[in-house]
Computed example of a mutant assay.
Amino acid sequence: MGASVQRKSLKQCVRHITPAWFTIVMGTGVVSTLVSRFNWGASSEGIKILTLALFFVNLVSFVLICVATLARYLLFPELWLAMLKHPTQSLFISAFPMGACSLINIALVAQHDYGFHPRSGAFLHLLWALWWLDVAVSAAIAVGMLNAMISTQKHAFSQLTALWMMPVLPCIVASGTGGLLAAVLPEKSEVELTIAVSSILVLVGLVVALMVLAALLVRLVIHGPPDTGLILSSLVPLGPFGQGGFSLLTIGQCLARGTVGLGPSPVTGLALSAEAVAAVTFSAAWMLWALGLLWLPLALLMIYKSARHTAVPFSIGYWSLVFPSGVYALLTVGFMLFRLRLPV
């Protein structure tokens, strides 16, 4: 109690700004999205103001963390390669494009609520251009980080955690933002291209995430829960379940509305019903929600058992709880809000 606390300089603080800090942007972004879709008082002025306030807080946080991150690698350039070689810290690079997507999502809500027509204006196409940039960054991180995990970093099966899903999660998050953009883009060609790219992103991301989840389940059965420092990552699988299901719902909604044309195949000549594809996306989203319903109590039990024996240290990792649980809640809300015209 008598020991004096040594205050760190600003330069020392900047040195410790890791990519994990972008989870703050992710968590705040999903909270603002949930507020905007809150069932009670929907479209009320209070909900709009709270959503916009959270958006600006998130935007300021994103800018400050970006500036601090840039300063870190300018002041300490040797930390860049050290971070890329770190088997855990490097995985959080994916938090950057996911945080950016959360800002685009709420910017779309703000555009709709405050004076902009949802299908016109340069602002909408600016958001679309930023989404394409985010897609490029997400794809580069997915390929680059998986390659680094395979060829550069050292891993062991006994150390496998849910964080191994992180490289492909930006693709799933970007697909959800693409589905939201497709619902308001004015040109049919823009909508079709956005839906096509979003479909590829969500399928690639979900396939890889589910493969990691299968390996994770085997690892947990054989070696037990992860160490206390990484026990909070047990909730990370709710991210691909929730965000993947939400992405499929938004894509299916666009198809059910007839905003995307699905003509006959040039090879087989068979026509593909948009409502049939929408029914498939709805069913796939329901399956992901059901998987999350199984995983959630398992993760909570692992965290509870670990916390009973050893105190979970307070760290930036607590923010990793917010986004996965938030997007799973978003998927749950999505089933209540979306009205898909499914065939009988």
Rank of each mutant, 00 (worst) to 15 (best):
L64S: 06
S102Q: 12
I93S: 08
A53W: 09
T69F: 14
M149V: 02
S44N: 05
S151L: 10
M83Y: 01
I104C: 01
G99P: 04
T69N: 00
L81K: 12
H112K: 15
E45I: 13
P87L: 07
S44D: 00
H125Y: 12
W132G: 03
G46F: 12
F116N: 13
F123H: 09
H117L: 11
N147K: 08
W40V: 09
Y114P: 00
S43P: 01
S61I: 06
I49E: 09
N105S: 15
L59A: 14
A53F: 10
V35Y: 06
I47K: 02
I65L: 12
A136H: 06
N105Q: 13
P118I: 11
E78H: 15
S102V: 14
C66R: 00
W80C: 07
I93H: 08
L74M: 10
G144H: 06
I150K: 11
F76S: 05
N105A: 13
K85Q: 15
R37S: 12
S151C: 07
M83A: 06
H125C: 00
H86G: 02
F76Y: 15
M145C: 02
A142D: 03
H117M: 11
P77G: 08
S138H: 00
R37D: 09
F38T: 09
L59N: 03
P118W: 10
L34H: 05
L59W: 08
I65C: 03
L126C: 11
A100E: 00
G121P: 14
Y73C: 04
C101V: 09
I106G: 03
N105D: 14
V135F: 06
H117G: 15
I49D: 01
L54S: 09
S61L: 13
A139W: 10
F62A: 01
N105I: 15
L126D: 10
S151G: 03
L124K: 04
P77Q: 07
L127P: 12
L130Q: 06
F96R: 02
F56P: 02
L59E: 05
N39Q: 07
K48F: 05
A140C: 08
R119P: 09
V63F: 14
A148F: 09
P118Y: 13
G115F: 04
H117I: 04
L50S: 09
P77A: 13
R72E: 02
A139E: 00
R37E: 10
R119A: 14
F92K: 05
A53T: 14
